[in-house]
Design a protein around this nucleic acid. Sequence first.
DNA 1: CAGGCTATATATAACTG
DNA 2: TCAGTTATATATAGCCT
Lengths: 198, 198
Amino acid sequence: MGRRKVEIKRIQDKNCRQVAFCKRRKGLLKKAKEISILCDVDVAVVIISNRGRLHEFSSNNSMTAMLRRYESHVGAEKEINAEIQVAEVSGFTTMGELLQTTERQLEETNADGLTLTDLIHLENELQTALIHLRARKTHLMLESAKVLHEKEKLLLEEKKHLEDNIASIKKNTKVNEMSDLPAPHMICGQQKVTLNFF
Amino acid sequence: MGRRKVEIKRIQDKNCRQVAFCKRRKGLLKKAKEISILCDVDVAVVIISNRGRLHEFSSNNSMTAMLRRYESHVGAEKEINAEIQVAEVSGFTTMGELLQTTERQLEETNADGLTLTDLIHLENELQTALIHLRARKTHLMLESAKVLHEKEKLLLEEKKHLEDNIASIKKNTKVNEMSDLPAPHMICGQQKVTLNFF
DNA sequence: CAGGCTATATATAACTG
DNA sequence: TCAGTTATATATAGCCT
């Protein structure tokens, strides 16, 4: 598409790579916009340069919102470690300890009341703990979803293999013999299937 | 780029639109791949046809994981609208508007600064939006996990049936005929692993 | 309806100032 | 380093099967 054909592999020259990035990014975003308008579909494009700069296109707000949310989640995940450290730095070794302290202090509030300084301090403490906790929560949920997705993928593959297997068997056997197989409810001596798929 | 120039506006003829979609989608995904390789950047593209079919490209795993997660939420777009409505209640028509307002106001802070009242107001606004948003996020994640669990259960049952089926076949057939079955490469019912959760 | 086939419109690699 | 120019490589609109 230029003076000469380029193979699709990482451009070695840093400058050329940067220039190509600017041009192609523009092109890609333009095309994304075009297809979304011409074909009336929702499109989202996210480009993150290796310097961490973000460029994006999205055809509608909800999609954008979605991707932004995702983005912030990913960011959060990366920051989890940092956040944990922050929590540690703030002087509490465990969440439980912080909670205990907080509760104690809140109880004391009824008695004599905390000073403004104490309150500010407490607020910051709680804020930090909250951030930490939220990040952890998000992390755990995402992790769980990821695992489930992987499991699902695995199961789908297994299923496919099994179906293929049945198809092979049918192919290698007279069709009429097989065609009226009992529905696969029949419980037959649970013999392990000898095929090793993975 | 074709026999004649087309203006960038929704293609009226349904068939043409569909054809253009297929072609341009392919082109867009190709370009996304190219730029990601050539320029060594992370790219994600999500295309959702108006019939709800999903097409995507992503240049790396973490991004893929994120988009897959997003994918599981595609069906929940309706719920996002609800979320936006929540934001509307708080006085802004869209989340975007809220963000814009916030950003504008924060920028102005450098110039003349907001009054304390303004800041308190803004804080409350953001707090409200944030609470709703977090609730929605948690809801979506839990929902997604639930659906994945159900899906897993279903797949396990299907797998069981298929295994039983194979067992039945083996039982009803001479074992030596089956013992050296060809590896299950045969492609059957090959449906895309796009997950429709909702 | 998906998959080729051109003629053209676009995108862009290398060049230029 | 950057924007503009130009020669080519690509993408694709309208056809056709």
